[in-house]
Design a binder for these strands. Structure first.
Length: 834
RNA sequence: GCCGGGUUGGCGGAAUCGGUAGACGCGAUGGUCUCAAACACCAUUGUCCGAAAGGAUGUGUGGGUUCGAGUCCCACACCCGGCACCA
């Protein structure tokens, strides 16, 4: 910083308030010049910490949700910086994606135009919001220098067999005209646009995330306690591990037996029919000639049903007999084989053994089609399902089960049957997962092109590293309109290329990648955003990763988090990084709502972040969201008071202006009570911040300001000369800088410090000031508070007991009764039992 | 149905080691200032009894453990979130 730079501060000595706008302008300029928030790549003396927050998608300007997450995240980042850590706090944009493409079609332009204009707007708003980002590391996933490496990673996954193409029945959004991952279909509708999702048989690209299912599950153990419980629970549900067995069923007319998965191999004796998913290849394969037509009709009916109808558990079961029989491997009985849509084609083998007595779905189906029910577990206290119509699943005595005589528990029964199946060569223990492979190809333009070339003679060939990135051709307007195939397919000049392998004519793959691919590794790129020899500099990543804390929305609890965890594990296996989990700790901030409901145009209850800032100032808005409650809780804007926050900040500012002692005045000579409060506040705030209880930190700073005000006002206005008041005011400025950086800078400057409170350090706590000379001791009689005593904090038990028993009101309640016991917890409590 | 989280004044919340329940703030009421209002400042503010001292009661419901429970245990109710024909 040049020495001639002077920071002008509103110096009117007894001004009642400050000009919020002027202050915001002034300090933003100082931060831009000094860049106090840049991570120091070279500094080896300070411990490093990586503070990560989910990068925004550039649709329009920032909204209240951004205001909340940035305020919370920044409080933590600034706290770490104050505590002396070398903090990496980067920002970027998740800038590929459909909204920009849809906007571009309407505006007849390239999506980049809209995207980068929005990014500039948001960047300006974020800077105004005073978030302590390191702007030198800014990245955008739609930049060719970024997606070059997204493509590079794809080719590495491809080489390892983790990216592959297959044909299957996939989710199709008729509105966006693209396929969707399972994760993007919510209650049968497109998560993005709300259109009812249908199924289509298409060949698509997948990432083999299922190969990592067990590790994704196991490694969550290390996250317990530092990730939200519900996020871990959601991921666990999503992965959906289940233990059971593969059981072989011979099917007439088929050479090989069909393996089906069951979690209840102990109920094979109760299997009375066999069900295949109508859309599984197996159904068409085994159907008897005379039933081919019936199956085709049923399949058509099933496919027409929307996902919502199909997934509905209401309503009668449907199905069609396939005209063949399967053999129960334990009873040898012939069981009819049916096709029914309650069996899912892509789970297990797409077929199940039906045990109607002990599975409600099978029982409902059996009732609909009048199929036999055989109870094999007699559960005590429950009616026979064959009679009651309610399937039982509990432990009980096995009946009709020759191999399970005398066994009384499910666990034992399961193990027993698995052993038997293994011995007979008809099955084995098995684990299946609900998790499916990640469908990553999209038939849209504004994403990273899949770096694969299709060659007539060589087949799929990945583009050579030195030819990356495969850049998007410049398409705009109606060229981008959804047609069911990728817009890239229409760019014929772009599509035709030469085969990297044989040099012959070939075609580029015309799909682009799901934007979740882009965001699965951006946190790694931040560590070395301009690195050109790979997606990231391994040394830089080793320095900063894993991120100590990740702030973001709960809407990414499954998708983005799971995918990022998957990428991290793959990169670990590739030897590029030495950790297996990317985010050590994770917090989901709540939503900002208004009047009990989500903000929406139709309800007219929207709250505009920019307007709030114009009305109350950045500091007051940030303080409001932090003070509203715990970070994970929703904030109802109708319940909070930015004007109250603003009032408090003015009070704090006046404290600094009332300080009349000189810089460096020795606080030791100051008011001892205030000093204790100051040091206790710093000490407590440290613990509160370490456990992310940011709202309580604000409350404690408010208490400090209140206490300081009292001292200033006490001695007829001369209290401002007390060095303890200066100490309190400086402490307030530093603590406040985490939440309300602008007013904190004003305070810091008026207190005679420069150049910026952003370079201040956490106040040292004098532990001798944390010890109270006297404390209030409460005295209970029969568990009720009957007296309070002010006693020396080092009083011994005997003396305290004597004092307590002598207290008049305590005496009154003992009232001559026998004192049976006295519990003394000196110096805070005496409990008298009568 | 399964999984996860929760239920504390008029409101947001605090009490995170089992030890004064209601910190801090909002709102409300009264007051000072003002011709008046706004702002600001001061005081009061869980409920009930009481002039006060003080007492009773009180953290979703019912039980339990303990000298002592918002906090621990058991059962239940309700609310929020996620998943849901995954065999």
């Amino acid at each position: 910083m040049s020495s001639e730079q002077q920071i002008e501060v509103s110096q009117a000595p007894h001004a009642a308030s400050y000009d919020v706008r002027a202050v915001q302008e002034r300090w933003r300029a100082v931060w831009d010049e000094l860049n106090p928030f840049e991570a120091d790549e070279a500094d080896e003396t300070r411990e490093r910490r990586y503070a990560l927050t989910m990068f925004p998608y550039p649709s329009g300007d920032l909204h209240m949700g951004h205001g909340e997450v940035f305020a919370l995240h920044d409080m933590l980042a600034r706290y770490w910086r104050l505590r002396g850590y070398n903090v990496l706090n980067p920002i970027g944009w998740d800038s590929f994606g459909l909204p920009a493409e849809n906007a571009a079609i309407k505006r007849n332009e390239n999506p980049a135009t809209y995207t980068y204009a929005n990014i500039e707007t948001q960047a300006e708003s974020i800077r105004r919001y005073g978030v302590s980002f390191d702007w030198t590391r800014r990245l955008h996933t739609s930049d060719p220098e970024y997606y070059r490496w997204t493509q590079w990673l794809f080719t590495r996954f491809y080489e390892r067999g983790l990216a592959y193409r297959k044909a299957s029945n996939v989710n199709w959004c008729p509105n966006d005209q693209t396929v969707l991952a399972n994760e993007q279909v919510v209650n049968g509708v497109c998560e993005r646009c709300g259109a009812v999702v249908t199924k289509r048989e298409l060949t698509q690209w997948y990432f083999k995330i299922t190969a990592y299912a067990q590790r994704l599950l196991d490694d969550m153990d290390a996250l317990r306690g530092s990730w939200p419980d519900h996020v871990l629970a959601m991921q666990r549900n999503w992965i959906g591990r289940s233990e059971g067995a593969w059981v072989d069923f011979a099917i007439e007319g088929r050479q090989e037996p069909v393996r089906v998965f069951t979690t209840r191999p102990d109920t094979v004796y109760g299997a009375t029919f066999f069900v295949v998913a109508p859309d599984a290849p197996l159904a068409a394969e085994i159907v008897a000639p005379e039933q081919v037509e019936a199956l085709a009709a049923y399949l058509e009916q099933t496919n027409k049903a929307t996902e919502i109808e199909r997934q509905s558990t209401e309503g009668a079961k449907t199905g069609v007999f396939l005209g063949v029989h399967a053999t129960n491997p334990l009873t040898g009985e012939q069981m009819p084989v049916w096709a029914a849509d309650y069996v899912l084609a892509d789970y297990g083998s797409g077929a199940v053994m039906a045990v109607p007595a002990h599975d409600q779905r099978d029982l409902d189906f059996a009732h609909t089609f009048d199929l036999p029910v055989r109870t094999v577990v007699a559960v005590p206290g429950e009616d026979d399902p064959a009679v009651s119509g309610v399937a039982t699943t509990g432990d009980g005595d096995y009946v009709n089960s020759p191999a399970l005589q005398g066994i009384a528990t499910k666990t034992e029964g399961v193990r027993h049957i698995i052993d038997k199946l293994v011995a007979d060569g008809r099955g084995e223990a098995a684990v299946t997962f609900r998790l499916r492979d990640w469908l990553l190809s999209r038939q849209r333009y504004w994403g990273a092109p899949i770096p694969i070339v299709h060659c007539g003679s060589c087949g799929e060939v990945s583009v050579a590293d030195e030819d990356l990135p495969v850049r998007l051709p410049d398409l705009r307007g109606t060229d981008l309109a959804p047609k069911g195939t990728s817009p890239l397919a229409a760019a014929t000049g772009w599509v035709s290329t030469t085969c990297p392998s044989c040099g012959g004519a070939a075609r580029r793959d015309t799909d682009t990648m799901d934007t979740f691919v882009d965001s699965s590794w951006y946190f790694l790129r931040y560590c070395s955003p301009t690195y050109s020899d790979g997606p990231f500099d391994p040394a830089a990543v080793a320095r900063w990763m894993p991120a100590e804390h990740y702030f973001g929305g709960v809407e990414h609890a499954i998708l983005h988090s799971l995918y990022s965890r998957f990428f991290t594990k793959v990169l670990h296996d590739m030897g590029m990084i030495d950790f297996v989990e990317p985010f050590t700790a994770h917090t989901n901030q709540g939503q900002v709502i208004n009047q009990g409901r989500s903000m929406s145009k139709s309800l007219g209850n929207g709250v505009d972040l920019g307007q709030q800032i114009d009305d109350f100032g950045v500091d007051a808005v940030r303080l409001t969201v932090v003070f509203a409650g715990p970070p994970a809780d929703d904030i109802d804007w109708a319940d909070v008071s930015p004007s109250g926050a603003s009032r408090f900040l003015q009070r704090a500012w006046r404290i600094a202006h009332d300080v009349t002692s000189d810089v460096g005045a020795d606080p030791a000579s100051g008011d001892p009570t205030l000093r204790k409060i100051t040091h206790k506040t710093v000490h407590d705030c440290q613990e509160l911040l370490d456990s992310h209880r940011f709202n309580v930190v604000v409350a404690r700073v408010m208490e400090l300001v209140n206490a300081t005000r009292k001292v200033i006002d006490a001695s007829a206005g001369s209290g401002g000369a007390d060095p303890a008041v200066r100490e309190a005011a400086e402490t307030t400025a530093i603590l406040l800088s985490m939440v309300a950086p602008y007013v904190a800078e004003e305070m810091w400057a008026v207190l005679g410090h420069e150049p910026t409170v952003a370079l201040a350090t956490w106040p040292a706590v004098d532990s001798s000031l944390l010890v109270e000379d006297t404390v209030i001791c409460i005295v209970q009689v029969s568990g009720k508070v009957r007296g309070k005593l002010e006693v020396a904090s080092d009083i011994d038990d005997a003396a305290l007991e004597a004092l307590a028993l002598a207290e008049p009101n305590v005496q009154r309640f003992i009232d001559g009764r026998d004192v049976r016991k006295v519990i003394v917890r000196a110096p805070k409590l005496v409990s008298v039992v009568v």
